[in-house]
Design a protein around this nucleic acid. Structure first.
Lengths: 78, 78
DNA sequence: TGGGGAATTTAAGCTTGACTTAAATAAAAC
DNA sequence: GTTTTATTTAAGTCAAGCTTAAATTCCCCA
């Protein structure tokens, strides 16, 4: 799955602990941990917006797309 | 919900029709329409990555966060 | 080096909603 | 005015988001 969760970097930059963030946005520590480590297969926008709000960032700061090298065919080059 | 779907702009820029995109990534036209118009409450990463791949863009190009004016309390100012 | 808080993991369960097909309507496009 | 595309509604399936609880591991620091 070429979606990568880059929440940790934002967390660190904010100097916030996962536990604090979880409490602040009302999400279980358990789930936040799973989310942070990319063990989750999707996200509700309600959760995503809480994260963005608490961290003062954009969705793109938390969720990134890593193109598969094999998928470069998609790009119209050459 | 302060999450806004900005897929249409990318679609237009690519000169692609919704139907084509739907077929290309294997998602129903129905669901893609609901997604595009923000009538959906979340997204699976599998779908998100297919969109990014097909459109050659990042998650942040499709999903944006619009802070609620009322939530500015979060920002540490003054 | 032991104790306390934070993080991770597993398990089990509830509930939401992503995504589907089908079908009908509306809106463009030509 | 007919064909293609888009939207909407409805009804259904099933994956998985998110929860609590509990056990385990990881870190830090005095």
């Amino acid at each position: 799955m070429p979606i990568r969760i880059t929440l940790d970097e934002v967390l660190a930059r904010k100097g916030l602990k996962a536990k604090q963030l979880a409490e602040q946005i009302g999400v279980s520590q358990t789930h936040l941990s799973l989310f942070r480590s990319g063990k989750v297969k999707g996200v509700r926008f309600s959760t995503l917006s809480k994260l963005c709000m608490a961290l003062g960032c954009a969705p793109g700061d938390l969720i990134q797309y890593d193109p598969d090298p094999g998928d470069l065919l998609t790009v119209d080059e050459e």
